[in-house]
């Protein structure tokens, strides 16, 4: 346990700047959201709503609620994405040096697991807290069950997008190899989105919504309906998939860390 503590301490020191920056970004975005919603309720935007009518105002409020609730949750997910230690370890040659220390691959993989799980928990708690504040300001009811499922889906999407690049970083021994993870990160998000698009296209249930979300004008109600359908279909699977991905990540990291130099 002392070894794990030392390794966790080391990783915290290295990633301190990353976590502070991530917190600041999500904090600033959240506060911006609170100010916008407060303005919609009591400020200048509320005055503008009086001119456009109740229906338009409700749509705008709901859109803002969704954006500042769920996009903030997306940004919270940065907390369990790659925190820069793997790349830094390769650059400084700590990864090479680390093999000369009495630390096993299991202990190293366990440290990564601790950070992964802590990041997921923090992201989830952060997203919930933000959601509650947003609901309190906007007056829109916070449906705990629905929001928890949405947060889990967002976490799962982010975890999946990060999975391959973090595996490459565990495997990498040189900076050139580590660079592959950057290339993966650039392509994996649009690739995941493209896969989702083609899956929707092939589905009788979801394909009608494609014309709505890819049309000139995106209808908010149709988008909301799509979101509810996705939630109904897949929301229940998100948490088990997250847990499964955590376990798979641990064992894959462990396998990758055993790789020695050429």
């Amino acid at each position: 346990m002392k070894k794990i503590g030392a390794l966790v301490y080391r990783e915290l020191l290295i990633s301190k700047k990353f976590y502070i920056t991530s917190f600041l970004i999500v904090f600033c975005f959240s506060v911006f959201g609170y100010l916008v919603l407060m303005s919609m309720e009591f400020g200048n935007i509320a005055k503008m709503f009086e001119e456009v009518g109740e229906e338009s105002a409700a749509v705008s409020k709901n859109s803002a609620y969704y954006i500042f609730n769920y996009f903030a949750a997306f940004i919270w997910c940065m907390l369990f994405s790659e925190n820069g230690t793997s790349a830094a370890d390769i650059k400084t040659k700590w990864r090479l040096y680390g093999f000369t220390l009495p630390v096993t691959e299991k202990e190293n993989a366990l440290v990564k697991l601790i950070f992964n799980v802590s990041g997921i928990i923090l992201s989830f708690l952060g997203a919930i807290s933000n959601g509650l504040i947003i609901s309190a300001i906007s007056g829109i009811r916070f449906d705990l069950e629905q929001n928890v499922k949405i947060y889990f889906l967002i976490i799962l999407f982010w975890m999946f997008s990060n999975f391959f690049s973090s595996v490459v970083l565990s495997w990498a021994r040189t900076q050139k190899e580590a660079g592959l993870s950057v290339i993966l990160q650039i392509f994996i998000l649009p690739l995941t989105a493209a896969v989702c698009y083609f899956l929707m296209k092939g589905s009788k249930e979801f394909s009608p919504y494609l014309s709505i979300i890819s049309g000139e004008k995106i209808e908010f109600n149709a988008l909301k309906e799509l979101g509810e359908k996705i939630l109904e279909r897949f929301g229940g699977f998100a948490l088990p998939c997250i847990l499964l991905l955590i376990v798979i990540s641990y064992f894959v990291n462990l396998r990758m860390m055993k790789r020695r130099y050429k």
Partner: peptide, 27 residues
């Protein structure tokens, strides 16, 4: 055993006290 390489493999942001804390947990 102890190994010394031609370049220091410790991160630039650490100081000597922090290295002690890390190694006291490892060894």
């Amino acid at each position: 055993i102890a190994v010394v390489f031609d370049e220091l493999p410790f991160h630039d942001i650490f100081n000597a006290n922090q290295m002690s804390r890390i190694f006291s947990g490892i060894y």
